[in-house]
Simulated assay, not measured.
Amino acid sequence: MDKASVSRFVILIVAVINTVLNVLGYQTISEQFVNDVVAVISGAYFLWAGWKNNYLSKKGLQQKEVLKKHKLD
């Protein structure tokens, strides 16, 4: 197993335990903390997606030149 699979599974287990405890009436993780974490992760993901889907890096600029050369842009 790779690290990404293990980390996703561990986060799933924590989320399930948190949900069960909340259903039973125990406040484990505050909603404010969850909202903050989601906001940070979302922001990081949007920045990463923007970087990967635009021709900003050296490799991306080279890819853009290849597309122009073959008139695919």
Rank of each mutant, 00 (worst) to 15 (best):
D36Q: 15
V14I: 14
K71A: 10
D2N: 07
Q27F: 08
I17T: 06
V40T: 13
V66G: 00
V40F: 14
K64F: 03
Q32K: 15
S30I: 04
T28R: 08
F46R: 15
I17W: 04
N53K: 02
Q32H: 12
N18C: 11
I41F: 13
L61W: 07
D36F: 15
V34Y: 06
N18Y: 07
S5D: 09
Q32L: 15
L56W: 05
L12V: 09
L61Q: 12
R8C: 11
I11T: 12
K68E: 15
L72N: 00
K64G: 01
N54W: 03
V40E: 14
K64S: 01
N18T: 14
D36E: 15
V34W: 04
L56K: 02
V66E: 06
Y55W: 00
D2R: 04
V16R: 00
V23C: 05
N35R: 14
G50C: 02
K59N: 10
Y45E: 14
R8D: 12
A49G: 04
Q63H: 05
V40S: 09
V34E: 02
A39P: 07
F46K: 13
M1H: 00
G25L: 01
K68W: 06
L72Q: 01
K3A: 10
I17M: 07
A4F: 11
L47E: 14
V10W: 02
A15L: 11
Q62T: 09
L72C: 00
V10K: 06
W51D: 06
I17E: 04
N18Q: 09
M1K: 00
L61M: 09
S5Y: 03
K59C: 03
Q62V: 08
N35M: 13
A44T: 12
E65D: 10
Q62F: 08
Y55R: 00
I13H: 03
W51C: 04
T19I: 10
N54K: 04
D73P: 00
L61V: 07
G25A: 04
V66A: 05
K58T: 12
I17K: 03
I41C: 13
A44H: 09
V16E: 03
G50F: 01
L47N: 11
F9Y: 07
Y55K: 00
V10E: 09
A49I: 12
Y26T: 14
Q62N: 11
L21T: 05
L24R: 02
V14C: 08
D2I: 00
V38Y: 12
N22R: 05
G43D: 11
I29T: 01
V34A: 06
K59A: 12
N35W: 11
I29W: 01
L67S: 00
V14F: 08
S7Q: 13
D73C: 07
K71G: 06
N22D: 09
Q27A: 11
F46T: 15
F9W: 02
V16T: 08
L12Y: 10
Q62L: 12
D36N: 15
K59P: 05
L24I: 05
V16L: 09
K68M: 13
S7P: 01
V37E: 08
N35T: 12
N18E: 10
Q62H: 07
K69W: 07
G50P: 01
A4L: 13
M1S: 04
K71N: 13
Q62C: 07
S7M: 12
T28S: 13
V38L: 15
D2K: 04
I13N: 04
Y45R: 14
L47I: 13
V38D: 13
K3T: 06
E65H: 04
S57H: 04
N22M: 05
V20Y: 06
S7N: 12
D2P: 05
